[in-house]
Design a protein around this nucleic acid. Structure first.
Lengths: 210, 210
DNA sequence: TATTCTTTCCATCATTTGATGGAAGCAAAC
DNA sequence: GTTTGCTTCCATCAAATGATGGAAAGAATA
């Protein structure tokens, strides 16, 4: 049997896990400063003291959310890499965009928190593992052919351009969807089409030139 | 002579204008909730009461910032449109990307506040004129050829993809630049190259197909 | 100079918010 | 049944924060 701590971490019914899930959503919606511990506690249906009992102070809970996202997203990227491995570039990108878009639409808090972290000033120590993930994806996309153990700035930025394009449409849904007046399903479908249209040709074209 | 209000609005030395400029920067750095009126007042070097005297409550000041951005950005888009009018698509996009990237790097608060507005929940009435701007750009890019008086969702999302790609690299500079370990000038240069590389081919390719 | 109007600051409030101590509840072990 | 340890909640605190009233300072005008 696992230790109580591990159990609490794994059992989604445990109070600790329930708090973490709600915290992830609320932090994603309102950002760190826009979120109050009372908002989270109320959403879970508990007292603030119970929240502090399980997770300590607000910043600790936020860091736990970051770590949770790192774990989940890291695993997802590994899964996708396995699926697309060996396929031609245009297919790899199409599948990756479709899959990751579905994933983020299902867990929009992840896109929200990542974008918040990019643009807002904070003083955290624990951090998103974006540098590692970005380098991994660059390798997976074949952008590091000339320097397998180092990721050139240009390759990093290209990957970030792709990833962030996805995040924007997920996090911006509340703002963009009324603009284009589409139902959710239709919005998701159009977002995927647009992303694939805009992002894939550049890379395919360059690959053909070598 | 202009009214005192207009004067205060135009004279960048006036207290009201100074507060607005600082507010724009601080709101951009920390978001609405992450910003306190005391932070703004301290940065300007005045008492909070003076701030409230000129701009009323915090939300009013924030709305003034939004209106200011709308005005400035709207004018910039008109200027760019004049410059690129008539040129071939690939050149139009290259110049627009270069120009707008320089513009946002010079005023990163604009990118910050726009991205904040996309992802964070608020209950504002006054709003960014993103829908209008987006439709204008779509028209300028020739994406509404088949329906000149209506902007199809797909065209809107394509424009948003381009605009947001720029915003991401400006607002994310503090996060991304250490990742790629570049000096500021080099970062800006690489960002422009990357944006043009990723964003232009898709549109040029489609235009060639018609 | 005296008067009036504008601008700025000091002192202070009420509310919100992060955080804690201690009592009460509850289940498992003895 | 009693004890022990874990969990939850109530009451409360201290600090941060948005906001205001009124006095003081300054500028413009008669």
């Amino acid at each position: 049997m696992a230790t109580p701590l591990e159990k609490a971490h794994k059992d989604p019914e445990s109070m600790k896990a329930r708090i973490l899930a709600v915290a992830c959503r609320i932090f994603g919606e309102y950002g760190f400063h826009g979120t109050t511990t009372r908002m989270i506690a109320q959403e879970v249906g508990i007292d603030i003291s119970t929240l502090h009992y399980h997770w300590g102070e607000k910043k600790d809970l936020y860091e736990a959310v970051i770590l949770d996202i790192n774990k989940d997203l890291g695993q997802k990227l590994i899964d996708v890499e396995k699926i697309i491995h060996g396929l031609p570039l245009s297919e790899r990108m199409a599948i990756a965009i479709d899959t990751m878009t579905d994933y983020f639409f299902a867990r929009p808090e992840i896109s929200n928190i990542m974008l918040f972290r990019y643009i807002a000033k904070t003083r955290d120590n624990v951090d998103l593992r974006v540098p590692e993930f970005t380098a991994d994806i660059a390798r997976s996309m074949g952008l590091t052919r000339n320097s397998p153990h180092h990721t050139p700035p240009r390759a990093m930025l290209e990957v970030l351009a792709v990833m962030n394009a996805i995040h924007n449409f997920i996090s911006g849904e509340n703002f963009f969807r009324p603009m284009v007046n589409l139902e959710r399903e239709e919005y998701i479908k159009t977002v995927k089409e647009t992303l694939k249209f805009v992002l894939i040709p550049a890379f395919v074209q360059r690959e053909g030139e070598t």
